[in-house]
């Protein structure tokens, strides 16, 4: 039972991070019907930038909260800039091109971001500065690190706030209108280009936060870390129903739980033949199963193609 709860907690932590990233995929997909393959790489950039900044600030003598805040703000700034540049340079010129073109561009941009980061941060693993948040709490046998608490509570409140914003504010209405029918939204006075930019800005900022969290949680960052993370977050978005914001959050948390529990128990059941070294396969198998049996996802609605 204790192991189970421990796995649930670990899965929840992971799931919150997936949810942050999945939201970025779903925001862009909901509006542009484009899989932004480079989105996972924004997380990587967020992790590496915050890593460098936190380290630099700490070396400079700044106390931990200041260093962390500085790292977070810096990472968000860089990620937002990269995200907007991505949209302007790579995707906007291809808005009316055949479907294959933006997909190929997206994969190209992902490559550029990864190799660009390899140039700046090197090809090796970079260890994240020790945040000193190691005084774990034990609750009925379950070990909770303060970092896990920060990740779960921080991302849940962030996600909650964002969902509320998009449901309630004028801005959110404009985004939803653009997602449903860009032409009509434009006719009704919505500045759709601004909405699209905003989707990239929000997605990139969330990716930066997720990057800092992932880096601090695993204590390493690497220029290729965005790929698997992005694939999983995309799976989460599909699982929840791509284009659906609450779906992305739900899908992220479910996938995190599934992965933690699956990796934990499958190893036990199979005598460690299929253990956590196969955990990346879970999310992929989930993606295939969802696509096969319920492609619209848990909360998505099935939109028939216009004929």
């Amino acid at each position: 039972m204790v192991t189970f709860l421990q796995q649930v907690l670990n899965g929840l932590t992971l799931g919150c991070i997936y949810a942050l990233v999945a939201l970025g995929y779903t925001l862009v997909y909901g509006i542009l019907e484009l899989i932004n393959f480079a989105h996972g790489d924004l997380v990587m950039i967020g992790a590496l930038v915050s890593l460098s900044l936190v380290r630099a600030l700490q070396d400079w003598g700044a106390p931990l909260p200041v260093a962390l805040a500085g790292g977070l703000v810096g990472a968000m700034g860089v990620c937002v800039l990269v995200g907007v540049a991505l949209e302007r340079l790579a995707y906007r010129p291809l808005r009316h091109a055949p479907k294959l073109a933006p997909l190929i561009t997206a994969i190209g941009m992902s490559m550029v971001l990864e190799q660009g980061s390899a140039l700046i941060w090197g090809r090796g693993y970079r260890s994240f500065p020790d945040l000193g948040l190691t005084h774990s709490l034990t609750l009925g046998g379950v070990v909770i690190s303060p970092l896990q608490g920060v990740i779960v509570l921080g991302s849940l409140s962030l996600l909650g706030g964002l969902l509320w914003l998009i449901q309630r504010s004028a801005l959110g209405r404009a985004m939803r209108a653009t997602a449903q029918n860009p032409v009509a939204a434009q006719l009704l006075g919505v500045d759709t280009e601004r909405v699209i930019t905003l989707a990239f800005v929000i997605g990139a900022a969330l990716a930066a936060i997720a990057g800092l969290m992932v880096g601090a949680y695993y204590q390493v960052a690497h220029y290729t870390m965005g790929f698997m993370l992005g694939l999983k977050a995309f799976t989460a978005a599909v699982l929840g129903g791509i284009g659906n914001l609450s779906g992305a959050v739900l899908g992220g948390i479910l996938l995190g739980l599934l992965e933690a529990l699956g990796a934990g128990y499958l190893g036990d059941w199979t005598g460690n033949l299929f253990g956590s070294n196969y955990k990346d396969v879970f999310s992929f198998a989930t993606l295939i199963l969802v696509l096969l049996f319920h492609p619209s996802g848990l909360l998505g609605r099935h939109a028939p193609e216009k004929v």
Partner: peptide, 12 residues
């Protein structure tokens, strides 16, 4: 890096 740039530039 060149592969990535090539894909982007060509598509554009």
């Amino acid at each position: 890096l060149l592969f990535g740039v090539t894909l982007v530039v060509l598509m554009r």
